[in-house]
Design a protein around this nucleic acid. Structure first.
Lengths: 250, 250
DNA sequence: CAGGATCGTTGATCTGCGTCAAGACTGCCA
DNA sequence: TGGCAGTCTTGACGCAGATCAACGATCCTG
Protein backbone atom coordinates (compact mmCIF):
# COMPACT_ATOMS: atom_id res chain seq x y z
CA UNK A 1 0.00 0.00 0.00
CA UNK A 2 2.79 2.41 0.93
CA UNK A 3 4.38 1.27 -2.30
CA UNK A 4 8.03 0.66 -2.91
CA UNK A 5 9.66 3.42 -0.94
CA UNK A 6 12.39 4.41 -3.34
CA UNK A 7 13.47 7.60 -1.62
CA UNK A 8 12.54 9.91 -4.50
CA UNK A 9 15.08 12.54 -3.57
CA UNK A 10 14.26 14.98 -6.35
CA UNK A 11 17.63 16.72 -6.14
CA UNK A 12 18.59 18.95 -9.00
CA UNK A 13 21.95 17.64 -10.17
CA UNK A 14 23.48 14.25 -10.95
CA UNK A 15 22.85 12.32 -14.10
CA UNK A 16 20.06 10.12 -12.78
CA UNK A 17 16.83 12.04 -12.33
CA UNK A 18 15.41 11.01 -8.95
CA UNK A 19 11.86 11.65 -10.15
CA UNK A 20 12.26 8.84 -12.64
CA UNK A 21 12.48 6.49 -9.67
CA UNK A 22 9.56 8.04 -7.80
CA UNK A 23 6.90 5.45 -6.99
CA UNK A 24 4.19 8.13 -6.97
CA UNK A 25 5.02 9.53 -10.38
CA UNK A 26 2.44 7.66 -12.40
CA UNK A 27 -0.24 8.65 -9.87
CA UNK A 28 0.75 12.29 -9.84
CA UNK A 29 0.55 15.33 -12.11
CA UNK A 30 4.24 14.79 -12.89
CA UNK A 31 3.16 11.67 -14.74
CA UNK A 32 2.37 13.69 -17.86
CA UNK A 33 5.89 15.05 -18.15
CA UNK A 34 8.58 13.57 -20.38
CA UNK A 35 12.24 13.39 -19.35
CA UNK A 36 13.07 16.98 -20.14
CA UNK A 37 10.16 18.45 -18.19
CA UNK A 38 10.68 16.05 -15.34
CA UNK A 39 14.29 17.09 -15.01
CA UNK A 40 13.34 20.75 -14.92
CA UNK A 41 10.68 20.10 -12.32
CA UNK A 42 12.99 18.12 -10.10
CA UNK A 43 15.40 21.02 -10.42
CA UNK A 44 13.06 23.28 -8.50
CA UNK A 45 11.83 20.75 -5.99
CA UNK A 46 12.83 19.95 -2.46
CA UNK A 47 12.36 16.72 -0.59
CA UNK A 48 10.52 16.62 2.72
CA UNK A 49 10.03 13.66 5.00
CA UNK A 50 7.34 13.82 7.62
CA UNK A 51 6.31 11.91 10.74
CA UNK A 52 2.81 11.34 12.17
CA UNK A 53 1.25 14.57 13.40
CA UNK A 54 3.79 16.76 11.67
CA UNK A 55 2.30 19.97 10.29
CA UNK A 56 2.93 20.64 6.62
CA UNK A 57 0.68 23.64 6.25
CA UNK A 58 -1.05 25.85 8.79
CA UNK A 59 -4.27 27.71 7.96
CA UNK A 60 -3.64 31.44 7.77
CA UNK A 61 0.11 31.19 7.12
CA UNK A 62 1.51 32.73 3.94
CA UNK A 63 1.05 30.20 1.17
CA UNK A 64 4.65 29.75 0.10
CA UNK A 65 4.83 26.02 -0.63
CA UNK A 66 3.11 23.42 -2.75
CA UNK A 67 3.50 19.70 -2.18
CA UNK A 68 3.27 16.49 -4.08
CA UNK A 69 2.72 13.58 -1.72
CA UNK A 70 5.03 10.71 -2.64
CA UNK A 71 4.53 8.27 0.25
CA UNK A 72 2.34 8.18 3.36
CA UNK A 73 -0.90 10.01 4.02
CA UNK A 74 -2.03 13.47 5.09
CA UNK A 75 -5.18 15.08 6.46
CA UNK A 76 -6.31 18.48 5.20
CA UNK A 77 -8.74 20.38 7.40
CA UNK A 78 -10.34 23.64 8.39
CA UNK A 79 -11.15 24.80 11.91
CA UNK A 80 -13.79 27.03 13.45
CA UNK A 81 -12.66 29.39 16.20
CA UNK A 82 -14.16 27.15 18.89
CA UNK A 83 -12.25 24.11 17.68
CA UNK A 84 -14.84 22.35 15.56
CA UNK A 85 -12.97 20.69 12.74
CA UNK A 86 -13.91 19.73 9.22
CA UNK A 87 -11.50 17.49 7.39
CA UNK A 88 -11.83 18.41 3.72
CA UNK A 89 -9.71 15.57 2.43
CA UNK A 90 -7.20 12.83 2.99
CA UNK A 91 -4.19 12.80 0.71
CA UNK A 92 -2.30 9.74 -0.50
CA UNK A 93 0.70 9.20 -2.79
CA UNK A 94 0.32 11.16 -6.03
CA UNK A 95 -2.02 13.74 -4.54
CA UNK A 96 -1.30 17.43 -4.87
CA UNK A 97 -1.46 19.78 -1.89
CA UNK A 98 -1.86 23.51 -2.27
CA UNK A 99 -4.15 23.95 -5.25
CA UNK A 100 -6.75 26.02 -3.48
CA UNK A 101 -4.70 28.88 -2.14
CA UNK A 102 -4.72 32.60 -2.31
CA UNK A 103 -1.94 34.47 -0.55
CA UNK A 104 -2.51 32.50 2.60
CA UNK A 105 -3.38 28.89 3.19
CA UNK A 106 -7.11 28.43 3.71
CA UNK A 107 -6.57 25.03 5.35
CA UNK A 108 -4.12 23.12 7.50
CA UNK A 109 -2.41 19.89 6.55
CA UNK A 110 -0.91 17.35 8.95
CA UNK A 111 0.77 14.03 8.40
CA UNK A 112 -1.42 11.09 9.25
CA UNK A 113 1.38 8.57 8.90
CA UNK A 114 5.06 9.06 8.26
CA UNK A 115 5.87 9.65 4.63
CA UNK A 116 7.42 12.08 2.22
CA UNK A 117 6.60 14.77 -0.28
CA UNK A 118 8.13 16.86 -3.04
CA UNK A 119 7.99 20.48 -2.00
CA UNK A 120 7.93 23.40 -4.41
CA UNK A 121 8.20 27.10 -3.91
CA UNK A 122 4.84 28.37 -5.08
CA UNK A 123 6.16 31.32 -7.05
CA UNK A 124 8.79 29.25 -8.81
CA UNK A 125 6.26 26.53 -9.54
CA UNK A 126 3.83 28.98 -11.06
CA UNK A 127 6.54 30.37 -13.28
CA UNK A 128 7.43 26.84 -14.31
CA UNK A 129 3.80 26.20 -15.21
CA UNK A 130 3.91 28.78 -17.98
CA UNK A 131 6.85 26.88 -19.47
CA UNK A 132 5.32 23.42 -19.10
CA UNK A 133 1.84 23.68 -20.59
CA UNK A 134 1.34 19.93 -20.24
CA UNK A 135 1.80 20.27 -16.51
CA UNK A 136 -0.61 23.15 -16.34
CA UNK A 137 -3.20 21.17 -18.26
CA UNK A 138 -2.71 18.20 -15.95
CA UNK A 139 -3.12 20.46 -12.96
CA UNK A 140 -6.35 21.88 -14.35
CA UNK A 141 -7.57 18.32 -14.82
CA UNK A 142 -6.63 17.50 -11.27
CA UNK A 143 -8.37 20.60 -9.97
CA UNK A 144 -11.52 19.70 -11.90
CA UNK A 145 -11.61 16.25 -10.42
CA UNK A 146 -11.04 17.57 -6.95
CA UNK A 147 -13.87 19.98 -7.48
CA UNK A 148 -16.09 17.13 -8.52
CA UNK A 149 -15.07 15.17 -5.45
CA UNK A 150 -15.83 18.23 -3.36
CA UNK A 151 -19.32 18.41 -4.86
CA UNK A 152 -19.90 14.77 -3.99
CA UNK A 153 -18.76 15.49 -0.46
CA UNK A 154 -21.19 18.42 -0.24
CA UNK A 155 -23.99 16.07 -1.22
CA UNK A 156 -22.81 13.69 1.47
CA UNK A 157 -22.52 16.33 4.18
CA UNK A 158 -25.70 18.16 3.29
CA UNK A 159 -28.10 15.34 2.54
CA UNK A 160 -26.91 11.86 3.48
CA UNK A 161 -27.63 9.91 6.68
CA UNK A 162 -24.89 8.56 8.92
CA UNK A 163 -25.05 5.09 7.36
CA UNK A 164 -24.95 6.51 3.84
CA UNK A 165 -21.97 8.66 4.76
CA UNK A 166 -19.89 5.82 6.12
CA UNK A 167 -20.85 3.51 3.27
CA UNK A 168 -19.87 6.22 0.77
CA UNK A 169 -16.57 6.73 2.53
CA UNK A 170 -15.68 3.06 2.48
CA UNK A 171 -16.77 2.69 -1.14
CA UNK A 172 -14.59 5.65 -2.08
CA UNK A 173 -11.57 4.15 -0.35
CA UNK A 174 -12.18 0.88 -2.14
CA UNK A 175 -12.43 2.70 -5.48
CA UNK A 176 -9.20 4.52 -4.74
CA UNK A 177 -7.47 1.24 -3.97
CA UNK A 178 -8.74 -0.18 -7.23
CA UNK A 179 -7.47 2.84 -9.12
CA UNK A 180 -4.07 2.33 -7.52
CA UNK A 181 -4.09 -1.22 -8.80
CA UNK A 182 -5.31 -3.01 -5.68
CA UNK A 183 -8.25 -5.41 -5.44
CA UNK A 184 -10.45 -2.91 -3.62
CA UNK A 185 -11.57 -5.54 -1.15
CA UNK A 186 -9.38 -4.79 1.83
CA UNK A 187 -9.32 -1.21 3.00
CA UNK A 188 -6.61 0.47 5.05
CA UNK A 189 -7.78 3.17 7.44
CA UNK A 190 -4.67 5.10 8.47
CA UNK A 191 -6.90 7.63 10.26
CA UNK A 192 -8.62 7.43 13.65
CA UNK A 193 -12.37 7.22 14.18
CA UNK A 194 -12.33 10.87 15.22
CA UNK A 195 -10.79 11.80 11.89
CA UNK A 196 -13.33 9.78 9.95
CA UNK A 197 -16.01 11.57 11.97
CA UNK A 198 -14.56 14.99 11.21
CA UNK A 199 -14.44 14.09 7.54
CA UNK A 200 -18.05 12.86 7.44
CA UNK A 201 -19.58 15.55 9.64
CA UNK A 202 -20.36 13.10 12.45
CA UNK A 203 -19.04 12.23 15.92
CA UNK A 204 -16.69 9.37 16.86
CA UNK A 205 -19.53 7.65 18.67
CA UNK A 206 -21.74 7.66 15.61
CA UNK A 207 -18.94 6.39 13.38
CA UNK A 208 -18.32 3.61 15.87
CA UNK A 209 -21.99 2.67 16.13
CA UNK A 210 -22.53 2.67 12.37
CA UNK A 211 -19.39 0.60 11.84
CA UNK A 212 -20.74 -1.94 14.31
CA UNK A 213 -24.04 -2.02 12.49
CA UNK A 214 -22.34 -2.68 9.14
CA UNK A 215 -20.25 -5.36 10.79
CA UNK A 216 -23.32 -7.04 12.31
CA UNK A 217 -25.08 -6.95 8.94
CA UNK A 218 -22.09 -8.73 7.45
CA UNK A 219 -21.38 -5.96 4.97
CA UNK A 220 -17.87 -5.44 6.30
CA UNK A 221 -15.46 -7.42 8.47
CA UNK A 222 -12.91 -5.74 10.71
CA UNK A 223 -9.44 -7.17 10.28
CA UNK A 224 -7.94 -4.78 12.79
CA UNK A 225 -8.77 -1.31 14.03
CA UNK A 226 -7.20 0.16 10.94
CA UNK A 227 -8.06 -2.26 8.22
CA UNK A 228 -11.24 -3.96 7.15
CA UNK A 229 -12.53 -6.11 4.37
CA UNK A 230 -15.62 -5.38 2.32
CA UNK A 231 -17.70 -8.57 2.30
CA UNK A 232 -20.64 -7.28 0.29
CA UNK A 233 -19.48 -4.52 -2.05
CA UNK A 234 -22.82 -4.31 -3.84
CA UNK A 235 -24.76 -3.86 -0.62
CA UNK A 236 -22.25 -1.25 0.53
CA UNK A 237 -22.69 0.67 -2.72
CA UNK A 238 -26.45 0.41 -2.30
CA UNK A 239 -26.22 1.86 1.20
CA UNK A 240 -23.99 4.65 -0.08
CA UNK A 241 -26.98 5.87 -2.05
CA UNK A 242 -25.59 6.09 -5.51
CA UNK A 243 -27.44 5.24 -8.75
CA UNK A 244 -27.67 8.67 -10.25
CA UNK A 245 -24.44 8.74 -12.23
CA UNK A 246 -22.32 9.06 -9.13
CA UNK A 247 -19.96 6.37 -10.24
CA UNK A 248 -16.28 6.72 -10.90
CA UNK A 249 -16.02 9.49 -13.40
CA UNK A 250 -12.34 9.43 -14.32
CA UNK B 1 -27.89 43.30 -10.61
CA UNK B 2 -28.88 41.84 -13.97
CA UNK B 3 -26.46 44.38 -15.38
CA UNK B 4 -26.77 46.20 -18.65
CA UNK B 5 -28.12 43.55 -20.94
CA UNK B 6 -26.08 44.22 -24.02
CA UNK B 7 -26.91 41.03 -25.86
CA UNK B 8 -23.33 39.71 -26.04
CA UNK B 9 -23.98 37.76 -29.18
CA UNK B 10 -20.48 36.30 -29.52
CA UNK B 11 -20.94 35.54 -33.21
CA UNK B 12 -17.85 34.72 -35.19
CA UNK B 13 -17.85 37.23 -38.02
CA UNK B 14 -18.42 40.96 -38.37
CA UNK B 15 -15.88 43.58 -37.51
CA UNK B 16 -17.12 44.42 -34.03
CA UNK B 17 -16.31 41.69 -31.56
CA UNK B 18 -19.48 41.13 -29.49
CA UNK B 19 -17.42 39.98 -26.49
CA UNK B 20 -15.95 43.45 -26.26
CA UNK B 21 -19.44 44.65 -25.36
CA UNK B 22 -20.14 41.83 -22.89
CA UNK B 23 -21.05 43.18 -19.47
CA UNK B 24 -19.76 40.02 -17.79
CA UNK B 25 -16.35 40.09 -19.42
CA UNK B 26 -14.43 41.72 -16.62
CA UNK B 27 -15.95 39.27 -14.15
CA UNK B 28 -15.20 36.24 -16.26
CA UNK B 29 -12.19 34.21 -17.33
CA UNK B 30 -12.40 35.93 -20.71
CA UNK B 31 -11.29 39.06 -18.89
CA UNK B 32 -7.65 38.04 -19.15
CA UNK B 33 -7.73 37.86 -22.94
CA UNK B 34 -6.60 40.67 -25.22
CA UNK B 35 -8.39 41.51 -28.48
CA UNK B 36 -6.84 38.74 -30.54
CA UNK B 37 -7.65 35.97 -28.06
CA UNK B 38 -11.09 37.36 -27.42
CA UNK B 39 -11.88 37.29 -31.12
CA UNK B 40 -10.76 33.69 -31.41
CA UNK B 41 -12.81 32.70 -28.41
CA UNK B 42 -15.94 34.40 -29.67
CA UNK B 43 -15.36 32.55 -32.92
CA UNK B 44 -16.02 29.22 -31.24
CA UNK B 45 -18.82 30.35 -28.96
CA UNK B 46 -22.55 30.22 -29.23
CA UNK B 47 -25.08 32.41 -27.52
CA UNK B 48 -27.83 30.92 -25.37
CA UNK B 49 -30.69 32.72 -23.69
CA UNK B 50 -32.53 30.97 -20.91
CA UNK B 51 -35.76 31.40 -18.97
CA UNK B 52 -36.51 30.50 -15.33
CA UNK B 53 -36.47 26.74 -14.76
CA UNK B 54 -34.77 26.00 -18.05
CA UNK B 55 -32.30 23.16 -17.86
CA UNK B 56 -28.81 23.93 -19.11
CA UNK B 57 -27.15 20.71 -18.00
CA UNK B 58 -28.58 17.40 -16.81
CA UNK B 59 -26.62 15.11 -14.48
CA UNK B 60 -25.55 11.98 -16.33
CA UNK B 61 -25.79 13.43 -19.82
CA UNK B 62 -22.67 13.46 -22.03
CA UNK B 63 -20.66 16.53 -21.08
CA UNK B 64 -20.56 18.29 -24.43
CA UNK B 65 -20.92 21.93 -23.48
CA UNK B 66 -19.29 24.51 -21.28
CA UNK B 67 -20.91 27.80 -20.35
CA UNK B 68 -19.98 31.24 -19.30
CA UNK B 69 -22.88 32.97 -17.57
CA UNK B 70 -23.28 36.49 -18.90
CA UNK B 71 -26.55 37.62 -17.31
CA UNK B 72 -29.03 36.10 -14.87
CA UNK B 73 -28.46 33.34 -12.34
CA UNK B 74 -28.29 29.56 -12.28
CA UNK B 75 -28.47 26.78 -9.69
CA UNK B 76 -26.12 23.81 -9.88
CA UNK B 77 -27.15 20.71 -7.97
CA UNK B 78 -26.86 16.99 -7.42
CA UNK B 79 -29.66 14.57 -6.63
CA UNK B 80 -29.94 11.33 -4.70
CA UNK B 81 -32.13 8.60 -6.21
CA UNK B 82 -34.95 9.34 -3.75
CA UNK B 83 -35.03 13.01 -4.69
CA UNK B 84 -32.99 14.58 -1.93
CA UNK B 85 -31.18 17.51 -3.49
CA UNK B 86 -27.95 19.28 -2.69
CA UNK B 87 -27.36 22.57 -4.45
CA UNK B 88 -23.60 22.85 -4.85
CA UNK B 89 -23.61 26.40 -6.06
CA UNK B 90 -25.41 29.40 -7.47
CA UNK B 91 -23.92 31.00 -10.55
CA UNK B 92 -24.00 34.67 -11.46
CA UNK B 93 -22.63 36.73 -14.37
CA UNK B 94 -18.99 35.91 -15.02
CA UNK B 95 -19.18 32.44 -13.50
CA UNK B 96 -18.03 29.43 -15.42
CA UNK B 97 -20.14 26.27 -15.69
CA UNK B 98 -18.68 22.91 -16.56
CA UNK B 99 -15.28 22.85 -14.92
CA UNK B 100 -15.81 19.67 -12.98
CA UNK B 101 -16.71 17.20 -15.67
CA UNK B 102 -15.54 13.87 -16.87
CA UNK B 103 -17.28 12.38 -19.88
CA UNK B 104 -20.65 12.99 -18.33
CA UNK B 105 -21.99 15.85 -16.26
CA UNK B 106 -21.82 15.08 -12.57
CA UNK B 107 -24.40 17.75 -11.76
CA UNK B 108 -27.46 19.45 -13.19
CA UNK B 109 -27.82 23.16 -13.85
CA UNK B 110 -31.08 25.08 -14.14
CA UNK B 111 -31.81 28.72 -14.72
CA UNK B 112 -32.98 30.52 -11.59
CA UNK B 113 -33.92 33.67 -13.45
CA UNK B 114 -33.95 34.44 -17.13
CA UNK B 115 -30.55 35.31 -18.51
CA UNK B 116 -27.96 34.32 -21.03
CA UNK B 117 -24.69 32.47 -21.43
CA UNK B 118 -21.88 31.91 -23.87
CA UNK B 119 -21.84 28.25 -24.80
CA UNK B 120 -18.75 26.39 -25.98
CA UNK B 121 -18.27 22.95 -27.36
CA UNK B 122 -16.12 21.26 -24.77
CA UNK B 123 -13.73 19.60 -27.21
CA UNK B 124 -13.22 22.77 -29.21
CA UNK B 125 -12.74 24.77 -26.04
CA UNK B 126 -10.12 22.39 -24.72
CA UNK B 127 -8.23 22.60 -27.97
CA UNK B 128 -8.41 26.36 -27.80
CA UNK B 129 -7.00 26.24 -24.28
CA UNK B 130 -3.71 24.85 -25.54
CA UNK B 131 -3.45 27.85 -27.84
CA UNK B 132 -4.43 30.43 -25.25
CA UNK B 133 -2.22 29.75 -22.23
CA UNK B 134 -3.48 32.88 -20.50
CA UNK B 135 -6.97 31.48 -20.61
CA UNK B 136 -5.83 28.15 -19.27
CA UNK B 137 -4.03 29.87 -16.41
CA UNK B 138 -7.12 31.93 -15.65
CA UNK B 139 -9.22 28.80 -15.64
CA UNK B 140 -6.84 27.09 -13.22
CA UNK B 141 -7.11 30.13 -10.99
CA UNK B 142 -10.88 29.97 -11.20
CA UNK B 143 -10.87 26.26 -10.41
CA UNK B 144 -8.64 26.84 -7.39
CA UNK B 145 -10.96 29.46 -6.01
CA UNK B 146 -13.98 27.29 -6.57
CA UNK B 147 -12.22 24.50 -4.76
CA UNK B 148 -11.55 26.81 -1.87
CA UNK B 149 -15.19 27.87 -1.84
CA UNK B 150 -16.14 24.20 -1.87
CA UNK B 151 -13.95 23.60 1.17
CA UNK B 152 -15.66 26.44 2.99
CA UNK B 153 -19.00 24.94 2.11
CA UNK B 154 -17.89 21.57 3.46
CA UNK B 155 -17.02 23.24 6.74
CA UNK B 156 -20.44 24.85 6.71
CA UNK B 157 -22.33 21.65 5.89
CA UNK B 158 -20.33 19.42 8.18
CA UNK B 159 -19.88 21.55 11.26
CA UNK B 160 -21.98 24.71 11.39
CA UNK B 161 -25.35 25.24 13.10
CA UNK B 162 -28.41 26.48 11.23
CA UNK B 163 -27.86 30.10 12.32
CA UNK B 164 -24.20 29.98 11.35
CA UNK B 165 -25.12 28.56 7.95
CA UNK B 166 -27.60 31.25 7.09
CA UNK B 167 -25.34 34.00 8.41
CA UNK B 168 -22.46 32.64 6.32
CA UNK B 169 -24.68 32.49 3.26
CA UNK B 170 -25.83 36.08 3.61
CA UNK B 171 -22.30 37.30 4.33
CA UNK B 172 -21.08 35.52 1.21
CA UNK B 173 -23.75 37.13 -0.92
CA UNK B 174 -22.83 40.52 0.51
CA UNK B 175 -19.16 39.89 -0.24
CA UNK B 176 -20.03 38.88 -3.78
CA UNK B 177 -22.02 42.06 -4.24
CA UNK B 178 -19.07 44.09 -2.97
CA UNK B 179 -16.73 42.31 -5.37
CA UNK B 180 -19.10 43.18 -8.21
CA UNK B 181 -18.87 46.80 -7.18
CA UNK B 182 -22.03 47.05 -5.08
CA UNK B 183 -22.28 48.36 -1.52
CA UNK B 184 -22.84 44.89 -0.04
CA UNK B 185 -25.66 46.17 2.14
CA UNK B 186 -28.70 45.12 0.19
CA UNK B 187 -28.83 41.50 -0.91
CA UNK B 188 -30.85 40.06 -3.76
CA UNK B 189 -32.11 36.52 -3.27
CA UNK B 190 -33.20 35.28 -6.68
CA UNK B 191 -33.71 31.80 -5.21
CA UNK B 192 -36.59 30.39 -3.14
CA UNK B 193 -36.36 29.37 0.51
CA UNK B 194 -36.34 25.75 -0.60
CA UNK B 195 -33.28 26.42 -2.73
CA UNK B 196 -31.49 28.19 0.09
CA UNK B 197 -32.32 25.19 2.26
CA UNK B 198 -30.98 22.73 -0.31
CA UNK B 199 -27.82 24.79 -0.55
CA UNK B 200 -27.30 24.94 3.22
CA UNK B 201 -28.30 21.37 4.05
CA UNK B 202 -31.44 22.46 5.91
CA UNK B 203 -35.21 22.48 5.35
CA UNK B 204 -37.39 25.38 4.19
CA UNK B 205 -38.96 25.58 7.61
CA UNK B 206 -35.61 25.98 9.34
CA UNK B 207 -34.47 28.62 6.86
CA UNK B 208 -37.68 30.50 7.47
CA UNK B 209 -37.41 30.26 11.24
CA UNK B 210 -33.77 31.34 11.32
CA UNK B 211 -34.51 34.23 8.99
CA UNK B 212 -37.23 35.36 11.36
CA UNK B 213 -34.85 35.12 14.28
CA UNK B 214 -32.24 37.27 12.50
CA UNK B 215 -34.96 39.75 11.61
CA UNK B 216 -36.20 39.93 15.22
CA UNK B 217 -32.65 40.45 16.45
CA UNK B 218 -32.37 43.38 14.05
CA UNK B 219 -29.43 41.87 12.18
CA UNK B 220 -31.27 41.92 8.87
CA UNK B 221 -34.35 43.65 7.50
CA UNK B 222 -36.54 42.12 4.83
CA UNK B 223 -37.25 44.48 1.98
CA UNK B 224 -39.28 41.92 0.07
CA UNK B 225 -39.33 38.16 -0.13
CA UNK B 226 -36.33 38.25 -2.43
CA UNK B 227 -34.27 41.10 -1.14
CA UNK B 228 -33.09 42.12 2.27
CA UNK B 229 -30.79 44.62 3.87
CA UNK B 230 -28.01 43.78 6.29
CA UNK B 231 -28.42 46.09 9.25
CA UNK B 232 -25.56 44.79 11.38
CA UNK B 233 -22.84 43.38 9.11
CA UNK B 234 -20.40 42.86 11.97
CA UNK B 235 -22.90 40.86 14.01
CA UNK B 236 -23.79 38.82 10.96
CA UNK B 237 -20.12 38.03 10.35
CA UNK B 238 -19.79 37.09 14.01
CA UNK B 239 -22.72 34.70 13.73
CA UNK B 240 -21.23 33.20 10.59
CA UNK B 241 -18.40 31.93 12.76
CA UNK B 242 -15.39 33.24 10.99
CA UNK B 243 -12.18 34.55 12.60
CA UNK B 244 -9.81 31.85 11.47
CA UNK B 245 -8.63 33.31 8.18
CA UNK B 246 -11.95 32.66 6.48
CA UNK B 247 -12.10 36.13 5.03
CA UNK B 248 -12.16 36.99 1.40
CA UNK B 249 -9.11 35.35 -0.01
CA UNK B 250 -9.03 36.63 -3.56
C1' DC C 1 -59.15 41.56 -10.58
C1' DA C 2 -60.59 36.94 -9.29
C1' DG C 3 -58.98 32.43 -8.13
C1' DG C 4 -55.91 28.81 -7.99
C1' DA C 5 -51.17 27.48 -7.36
C1' DT C 6 -47.03 28.13 -5.39
C1' DC C 7 -44.27 29.86 -1.77
C1' DG C 8 -43.46 31.31 2.94
C1' DT C 9 -44.35 31.42 7.96
C1' DT C 10 -45.38 29.54 12.31
C1' DG C 11 -46.66 25.98 15.69
C1' DA C 12 -46.63 21.09 17.60
C1' DT C 13 -44.38 16.97 17.69
C1' DC C 14 -40.86 13.57 16.55
C1' DT C 15 -36.27 11.59 15.85
C1' DG C 16 -31.40 10.88 14.33
C1' DC C 17 -27.56 12.03 15.92
C1' DG C 18 -25.02 14.51 19.56
C1' DT C 19 -23.68 14.55 24.36
C1' DC C 20 -22.37 12.51 28.53
C1' DA C 21 -20.66 8.60 30.87
C1' DA C 22 -18.40 4.27 31.75
C1' DG C 23 -15.75 0.43 30.40
C1' DA C 24 -12.82 -2.33 27.15
C1' DC C 25 -9.16 -2.58 23.96
C1' DT C 26 -4.55 -1.38 21.97
C1' DG C 27 -0.16 -0.09 21.85
C1' DC C 28 3.80 2.07 23.78
C1' DC C 29 7.54 2.63 27.01
C1' DA C 30 9.92 1.34 31.14
C1' DT D 1 5.51 -7.81 31.19
C1' DG D 2 2.92 -4.61 33.31
C1' DG D 3 0.80 -0.26 33.53
C1' DC D 4 -0.94 3.81 31.68
C1' DA D 5 -2.56 6.91 28.08
C1' DG D 6 -4.91 7.21 24.15
C1' DT D 7 -8.48 5.14 21.31
C1' DC D 8 -12.65 2.63 20.64
C1' DT D 9 -17.16 0.80 21.89
C1' DT D 10 -21.58 0.75 24.00
C1' DG D 11 -25.43 2.58 26.70
C1' DA D 12 -28.65 6.30 28.53
C1' DC D 13 -30.40 10.60 27.65
C1' DG D 14 -31.15 15.24 25.40
C1' DC D 15 -31.71 18.49 21.75
C1' DA D 16 -31.30 20.87 17.16
C1' DG D 17 -33.44 20.53 13.42
C1' DA D 18 -36.71 17.45 10.67
C1' DT D 19 -41.40 16.33 9.96
C1' DC D 20 -46.24 17.12 9.95
C1' DA D 21 -49.86 20.38 9.77
C1' DA D 22 -52.33 24.62 9.12
C1' DC D 23 -52.67 29.04 7.50
C1' DG D 24 -51.20 33.48 5.25
C1' DA D 25 -48.82 35.93 1.45
C1' DT D 26 -47.55 36.35 -3.31
C1' DC D 27 -47.78 35.67 -7.94
C1' DC D 28 -49.40 34.17 -12.22
C1' DT D 29 -53.05 33.64 -15.77
C1' DG D 30 -57.10 34.44 -17.91
Amino acid sequence: MTGTVESPVCASDGRIDPCSLCSARKLSVCGVLADEGLRRLSGISDHQDFTPGEILVREGDPATNLFNITTGSVRVYKLLPDGRRQIVGFLFPGDFLGLATGDRYAFSAEALTSGSACRFHKKVYRRMLTELPDLEAALLDRASHELQAAHNQMLLLGRKTAVERLASFLSDLAARDRRAGGPGRVIQLPMTRAEIADYLGLTTETVSRVTSRLKTRGVIRLLSLHSLSIEKPAELAELAGLDAGDGEAL
